[in-house]
Nucleic acid binder design. Structure first.
Lengths: 352, 352
DNA sequence: CTTTAGCACTCCTCGCTCCCGAGTGCTAAA
DNA sequence: TTTAGCACTCGGGAGCGAGGAGTGCTAAAG
């Protein structure tokens, strides 16, 4: 059954009041905020209906109404107005986007930090959709007889390097040969395959050289695997302490601990869209059952997406959070597309 | 005036009780834990003295006593017994030390995380004492006409690299020349000097090449400056929520926010020693005035030190925290000295 | 001079009751 | 269908008193 327009308006008022005050909303308060002038008694009748339909809840008889998850859902889907960001807000976000990006992981964690700062809720950030990173190119640079630098460029054009000490010692010629070997046989393949090939070579290669080879492969594996693929950065957890629903230290602790420890269980966003809102029990995670999560994604390029998620009470200011987050995510996407030196990126018309 | 042995023993009992219970300690409880059998009345007399001398405080008449910062200080300096770590504890720490260290910054932040986990208090981690890092060696690897990889090895043997897109385009020969130039003139000097030299060259170098040069230098500067020198990692902040003194959400929030935002104001450890304890008002930071901080340092090599600090209530279990932290820091120092492939490191006798 | 028992006193904590007021649900009239 | 009126509900806070842990003091004993 469809809700009457007036019911919707009432629902909206209740939700928006509750979002800003965290206190049950009474019929009188609603009456004064409605466009049409009706008495509080009328409102009460409507409220009773809305409760029965499951859009509102009553903490106890003789208290005002608070929204139920179902109510929030309706609000988010239909009632919520596209919140236009103020000039000030956009400027703030643009300023945040000016950050220098030195390394991809740095950007991801920074994005999380900024998201948290932007909305004053805890946030998490991660990259997703790296379907098996591979190495695109190896370089080995001789430093001294007992050590060399391994430079690994992954197929998404990130470059990592590290000094490796060879126990056996290698000279520049050997390194060059090794590099050629690596580039010939170890590029474009994933970790397990690398290890397999390494095994194959174990007999056919002189011992000392093989040692060095395997050290290099080990490093390469750590790069493509450990990168920041599964790393989840959590920030701004302290923000929840300001919220009345988390005045209780135990509750706050529970959520915080969950967010920092249980990082791989955080909701990931939908495929296709670039923003999702999960309200209360819509979250599969037990610990997030009475919080809401807003997740936005941005393109990093090379079919990878970055994720920024915001965790807050169900009484979250969805309009603002969604607006800011999506603007921010769009900005990040643009940033990666345009000025990113890491990636070729789609050329956009740009006048600098 | 010196304290009598009995006063010291009483003080010790009070502190240790208070540390474990967070509740004022009464004369009767003390009497039952003292080695010499004395009555509670005697204890009361002693307690009155201790209060007068400033070692103890009384929340209100007719409550037990709690230690004052001065009391804790005496305890830490004289009374506290060197806490021997149990086998289990050392094993746990040793296990933590097995971590792979891929990158220095990774290790530092990880050290902080582990420290927090080890003592169940919030912890922060940073590196200190990098007196102007310099570049030891440059390598430039040609990727394609419009981009190349810059590899920078700092004088403490860390290696960083990144793909740089050159707007003008450079071929391999040019890169080789550029690398030679860089290695000849831009190694061993600090950031400001690099920029000065760059200025000098601005006229004498062909435009396109100069562009590439300055991009590279810019990157080098970001490495030696931004590295992890001033970066402070904070973790485990959620731990404070378990403590009764931070049941109050406002208090907890204050400390947490301070720790994450105000990172550069965190106490740094003393020169010379490798561990310091700062109790309550001994902290210069307003926000840390009723918390205590235990800071330990470990050698990273190349006259750099890593710092791990633990922040907790003044009622912190100093003995345990100090023991674990120093054991952990020692372990880190050893780790860096021994198996660290990043650094030559002091040769220790080692039979592997 | 130190230690101890005794005792009155202090003051926090907890549970209880009671009151207030916001807000409801219902009824009856418009 | 809307509205005014009114009795009712229920949470929250104030006020009160009992209980108890712990003190400070005094006076006697070692």
């Amino acid at each position: 059954m469809e809700l009457t327009p007036r019911k919707k308006e009432i629902l909206k008022v209740v939700i928006e009041n509750y979002i800003s005050t965290a206190e049950p909303v009474g019929s009188k308060a609603i009456a004064s905020q409605l466009t049409s002038k009706v008495s509080s008694a009328t409102i009460r009748n409507e409220l009773a209906d809305l409760v029965e339909m499951g859009y509102l809840e009553q903490p106890h008889t003789s208290a005002g109404r608070i929204p139920s998850p179902k109510g929030y859902r309706l609000y988010v889907n239909e009632l919520m107005e596209q919140r236009a960001l103020s000039l000030q807000e956009t400027e703030e976000i643009n300023r945040a986007l000016q950050m220098k990006m030195q390394e991809l992981d740095g950007v991801i964690s920074k994005a999380g930090q900024m998201a948290a700062a932007l909305v004053n809720y805890p946030a998490y950030a991660m990259a997703s959709g790296t379907p098996g990173l591979t190495v695109q190119r190896f370089d080995l640079l001789s430093v001294d007889p007992s050590s060399f630098i391994a430079v690994v460029m992954t197929q998404d054009s990130r470059v990592k390097s590290r000094l490796i000490r060879s126990e056996t010692g290698v000279d520049a010629d050997q390194l060059a040969a090794l590099a050629a070997l690596l580039n010939a046989h170890f590029t474009g393949i994933d970790e397990t395959e690398m290890n397999r090939k390494l095994m194959d070579l174990s007999g056919k290669t002189p011992g000392p050289l093989f040692m060095t080879l395997s050290q290099t492969i080990e490093y390469a594996c750590s790069v493509i695997e450990g990168g920041e693929k599964n790393k989840v950065y959590t920030t701004g957890a302290n923000n929840i302490l300001k919220l009345p629903e988390f005045r209780d230290a135990d509750k706050a602790h529970e959520l915080m601990s969950f967010m920092v420890d249980n990082t791989e269980n955080l909701p990931v966003p939908p495929a296709g869209t670039n923003m999702e809102i999960l309200i209360g029990p819509e979250n599969v995670n037990e610990a997030l059952r009475d919080t809401s999560v807003v997740v936005a994604s941005y393109d990093i390029g090379d079919n990878m997406r970055g994720l920024i998620g915001v965790v807050g009470p169900t009484r979250m200011d969805y309009a603002t959070v969604a607006a800011r987050l999506s603007y921010f995510a769009e900005g990040l996407t643009k940033m990666f597309g345009k000025q990113d030196p890491l990636l070729p990126g789609p050329k956009e018309e740009q006048k600098t």
